[in-house]
């Protein structure tokens, strides 16, 4: 084994899987486009710094795990990447466009059209049915109700929760709810799906099912996934990982 540097430069390479093929086993063309690039992000909430120099790159179609202990700044990093939180300094670009220079309205439109989100819990609108929840992002994008609900139903079926379409989120199990949330995140065919501890409230069996469906569906649609988690078994669904500790990304990008 050669070329391994004591500074850990190779830690971020997940594609060294046997045979050297991309970890997911199908080729998405190379070099993969750099969708999101974060450089030297700093962000403090009050006196506590949440990010103190975080950098990473998300490439088209990859599943990137952001690992780290609680309070390390993983979620803040995700929020900065998604344009939810503005960094105090540093830059985030999405396909070359600087997120930090965008207006709230532009960011909103970007999140609505290009990104999808899965949170740990409490993301489904409790008074809407599961079908309506999934159709919601499409309808915000001005897709007609009938068409939106047709596509939503399709996605529910794909995530194996077609049977809960008419139920309200309060009436379905946690695992089903998360799968509905995944369907909602993917229904607009986003370029990037941000998943913040998507299985945090689930047991292993349900968590794994959600992860399998999430990564599978993302690969099918070519969406990149930024997966924030502190669980190794969840991170094992990624192609590559980045570790955040004390607000800094530990791993360097593999040398170009």
């Amino acid at each position: 084994m050669t070329g391994i540097h004591a500074d850990g430069g190779a830690a971020a390479t997940g594609r060294r899987a046997d045979g050297g093929a991309p970890a997911d086993g199908h080729d998405r063309g190379s070099p993969a486009e750099e969708l999101l690039v974060a450089e030297e992000l700093h962000r403090a909430f009050g006196p506590t710094p949440a990010l103190a120099g975080a950098s990473l790159t998300v490439r088209a179609g990859e599943v990137l795990a952001v690992l780290g202990p609680s309070g390390s700044g993983k979620s803040t990093l995700l929020h900065c990447l998604a344009g939810i939180v503005r960094p105090d300094s540093g830059r985030v670009t999405y396909r070359g466009a600087d997120l930090t220079a965008m207006s709230d309205r532009e960011l909103s439109a970007l999140r609505r059209g290009q990104f999808g989100f899965v949170f740990q819990f409490g993301q489904l609108v409790p008074e809407l049915t599961c079908l309506e929840n999934v159709a919601l992002p499409l309808r915000l994008e001005r897709v007609g109700r009938r068409e939106a609900e047709r596509r939503a139903a399709e996605w529910l079926g794909r995530l194996e929760v077609g049977d809960v379409a008419g139920k309200r989120p309060g009436e379905v199990s946690g695992g089903q709810g998360q799968r509905v949330a995944v369907a909602r995140a993917l229904v607009t065919a986003p370029r990037v799906v941000f998943a913040d501890e998507p299985t945090g409230a689930l047991d292993s069996l349900h968590g794994e099912r959600v992860m399998r469906l999430l990564t599978g569906a993302a690969r099918d649609t070519g969406a990149a996934v930024v997966l924030v988690t502190h669980e190794a078994r969840v991170a094992a669904y990624s192609d590559r990982e980045v570790v955040v500790r004390d607000g800094r990304t530990r791993s360097l990008e593999p040398a170009a």
């Binding site: 939810i84 909103s108 970007l110 999140r111 990104f115 989100f117 993301q123 609108v125 992002p137």
Partner: peptide, 16 residues
């Protein structure tokens, strides 16, 4: 407020 923040996060316009 959590739900509202979440809806805003996924890009729901304020007008909506």
């Amino acid at each position: 407020r959590r739900l509202l923040a979440m809806l805003a996060a996924v890009g729901t316009p304020r007008r909506t």
